[in-house]
Amino acid sequence: MVSEHSRDRLDRRKVVAQLLAERGDALVVSGLGSSTYDVHAAGDVDANYYLWGAMGGAALVGLGIALAQPSKRLLVITGDGEQLMALGGLATIAVARPKNLDIIVLDNESFGETGMQASHTASGVDLAAVAAAAGFAATGIASTIDDVARLASELQQHGEGPRLFVIKLKADSPPRSMPNRDAVFVKNRFRSYLGLGPC
């Protein structure tokens, strides 16, 4: 179902496909729910790490990888609900100040997995402003396809510190595109991509 207010908003699958088409050698972590399906739908590659749970953990898993792999760009793609659970994590990331960590918040202003209940961003909570206030090096809100094109280009270079961009989306639920749910398999596949052994 598409709510009235979001009729002209961006399509999440197209946005994620556009961002990832220009990912280069970036590592990608996806937050649970629709973000994981969107990343998988854009192409299941070994450099993706999908979360199926651990709500609130996506950006911080990204921080851990970014600290361990400072030469790699790390792109976290997650939803507004998932990131709202980790507002404190934005402070932690801002203080840790990795230059290779970018967070993309796919903001449909809804908890999409559970029946499209309105999230806090529907009532005006501005995650980009929270990140800016915490001290992120760059933040912004994208709401048009041209904004997304500029963002995809900007993300190809390391930032001066962590960056967070909110992309305002249509509140819909495209068909699920489900990656492997075996967490050990996905872990070992990702580590193998980085040249690391399973244990």
């Binding site: 972590v29 790490y49 609130g56 953990g57 990888i65 203080v95 980085l194 690391l196």
Partner: peptide, 20 residues
């Protein structure tokens, strides 16, 4: 890394291991 809440450390630790 100083945390605002301990669960952040659990996620960071798992990410760190993913990155070696």
């Amino acid at each position: 890394t100083v945390l605002t809440t301990e669960e952040e450390g659990v996620a960071i630790s798992t990410g760190a291991w993913l990155g070696g």
